[in-house]
Design a protein around this nucleic acid. Sequence first.
DNA 1: CCTGTGATTTAGAACGATCTAAATCCAGCA
DNA 2: TGCTGGATTTAGATCGTTCTAAATCACAGG
Lengths: 337, 337
Amino acid sequence: MQRKRVTLDEVARIAGVSRATVSLVVRKSPLVADHTREKVEQVMADLDYVRDIGAARLRNNSSRTVGVIVPNLVNSFFTEFLAGVERVMGEDDRVVLLANSQDDPRRQEEILQRFRGHGVDGVILCPAAGTDPDLPARMRRWGLPVVQSLREIGRDATDYAGADYIEGVRLAVQHLVGLGRRRIAFLSVSARTSAREERLAGFARALAETGATDAGIVEADLTWEGAAHSAAEVLALRSRPEAVLCFNDVLAAGLMLGLRRAGLEPGRDMGVVGLDDLPLAELTYPPLTSVAMDPAGIGVAAARLLARRLADAGAPVERSILAPRLVVRESSGSDAG
Amino acid sequence: MQRKRVTLDEVARIAGVSRATVSLVVRKSPLVADHTREKVEQVMADLDYVRDIGAARLRNNSSRTVGVIVPNLVNSFFTEFLAGVERVMGEDDRVVLLANSQDDPRRQEEILQRFRGHGVDGVILCPAAGTDPDLPARMRRWGLPVVQSLREIGRDATDYAGADYIEGVRLAVQHLVGLGRRRIAFLSVSARTSAREERLAGFARALAETGATDAGIVEADLTWEGAAHSAAEVLALRSRPEAVLCFNDVLAAGLMLGLRRAGLEPGRDMGVVGLDDLPLAELTYPPLTSVAMDPAGIGVAAARLLARRLADAGAPVERSILAPRLVVRESSGSDAG
DNA sequence: CCTGTGATTTAGAACGATCTAAATCCAGCA
DNA sequence: TGCTGGATTTAGATCGTTCTAAATCACAGG
């Protein structure tokens, strides 16, 4: 059923040149004479020739394929990230192999093996929570270039693209303190990742800098339902917080729902700030104050880092950290309030 | 720099058997004797052998790779769809090549050529608006199996997985009419796709069935900002609608924002119903009544259809249409109101 | 001890490209 | 004419796997 492929050989035969010459034309080598090139290109167009990249890779070791592993696909943060990666790779005539680790290191391992089997040129990895710290070293042993992104295992083990979470948290805390809300709680997630640690560290540091008080740290599942349920826990904290800073916008939106169910008005009775500034932030009620992390930009940066590493395997390890930006809406409460 | 691959040959040499035998072991053929199999498997594990799927495909024509083309990645509808596809493919030890057409037929064409070059076994396509109706036929000529999903070019040209949009719209209209809201407007998108046509057709049919009146059709960009702006247009319709049915939840959320800006209370002053039931629907204020289309389930169905077609190229064309489910929240207004 | 049979194993040719090294072409010059 | 050198072109090996067809093995039966 499968129609037989048009091969270099056929093109060569019909164009009356050798296979090697056609190969040179395909690769746009300057070695071929103009009239030959034109003739060959004409034939390729006529026959609808499509170069078999797998066969090419077998010989020259470049599949123009990169793998991307994200821990989930429902949080639009990762999706926008992915869109950024995909755009750059597409421009560069590369193709993205996508896989979802579901934040499970075992699945992640299987995926990596599959990627190896497919001969990917490199991988952009957002490591699953609980990933073996040895992974970057193993990948190096495999000869598989990798860029970590959004999260990180073993600092400086590989190139890395992310946002400055610490600064992001600082912006949020400063904003709240500026509004007069000094008792601040943090709504965190349970999955242990570098992103979590950084945000928590940033929280502690920002409290110290601004002199605000730590009203406590509450953990929730990374779903809006989980966050909604945690509202009770937040309200039961020894010293009732004046504001809650949330690990991300999904949690923040869920928390606001939970607060409202408890009869409170987010923004007025309790300041709520998210992190990430997903499109969602604008649509909640009240609109959510958040810190934009530009996931698409991070994706672009990660893709560029990988492209650079593929071009030069020996380049020094590089980190690309994007600056966050505070987006004030209504959920943090107004100055007057 | 790139570590040399461990090949079948090496494994064979060390295990003291032939390349062919190792190949049989890799493919779990029942032809090899148990003690041989064990010996070879041991060596493979020791050497960390990874089979080169590209080389395999070159010989046997199965890359265990499928391409997926979606028109965008920011709408979480497509992401959940993708997650469903990815899950099934992963279980089946296949890998997903992802690409984003940005609803541009030219980009889509480039992507398809790239996929062809990579030797994908098949494609799951959500055709870009404005795709040449001839595309399915061309793909057939290429010998490239395809399943269309979510949208469709040329009914019955290929396998198709989607939701019953017409029924979904009917559910929504019936619900609104049941609440006593009989003058209903439709907030649509501008991009011409089969999804749009179906929903519009469903709207007309549902109006006829229920005896509700068509308050008009308004078009917006497929962004929440666009929908927010269109609120004015909705309010200016000759006969002011009692409810608005929206092409999807993103538009519905934006519309509610626009209505509130105009001083109206969605749900009370104007019923709003979305389609798709994204996670977002629960987080808007008021929570959005919507029709669940189960995008992940559609993704699963699409993947299964493709797997089936790959197993049997001659199978009859099949359509897999999921039933929608109305999810009543508050934005449609209460019975009492 | 030879032969037939089913169970295993294998040599060697594919697959479709790229690479290397060498061949051929062609003008310019002695 | 014959030689030289740069510009083009090419033959043939090669990448890592699978396929085909045939070889080999082990053992039962005669």
